[in-house]
Amino acid sequence: MTRVHDRGGWPGSGPIDKSEHDLSWWEKRTDAIASLLMSPEKRVMRVDELRRAIEDMEPARYEQSRYYAKWLHAIETIMAEKGVLTREEIDRKVRELSARR
C-alpha cells in the first residue's frame, strides 16, 4: 500500500499553488536545529531518521501539517526516542516560557 509521503502520481491532485512566503524566524530555527543535530560534528540525528519520523506521521496529520511543523514533530520524536528530551519536558517548557511572557 502506498504510504502518505509517497506522493508520486497521487490521485486527485490539483493545481500547484505557486505563492511563496519568506520563512519565519521559527521556521528558520527549526531548520537550523535539525541541521545542527544532523551535522557531522554532532550526529545526534540522521537525515533518514528525520524522514522516517515524518513518514510515520498519521496520514491526515501529515497532509494538514505545515512543512516545518512536520520537521519539529520529527525532531521531538527522534530526541524522545534517543532519550535526549521527553514530550513531557517540552510541554512543561512551553508552559514555563508562555508564563514568562
Binding site: W26, I33, L37, K42, E76, V84
Partner: peptide, 28 residues
C-alpha cells in the same frame, strides 16, 4: 503552538548542552 514548541525544544537542547544559541544563530 508551533512557535512555542520551537522555543521550548531549542531552550531544552541548549540547557542539555546539545546545541548552543550561538550555533543556532550561525546556522540560520
Amino acid at each position: 503552538e508551533f512557535e512555542w514548541r520551537v522555543d521550548a525544544v531549542q531552550a531544552l537542547l541548549i540547557e542539555k548542552g546539545v546545541i548552543t544559541a550561538d550555533e543556532v544563530r550561525r546556522a540560520v
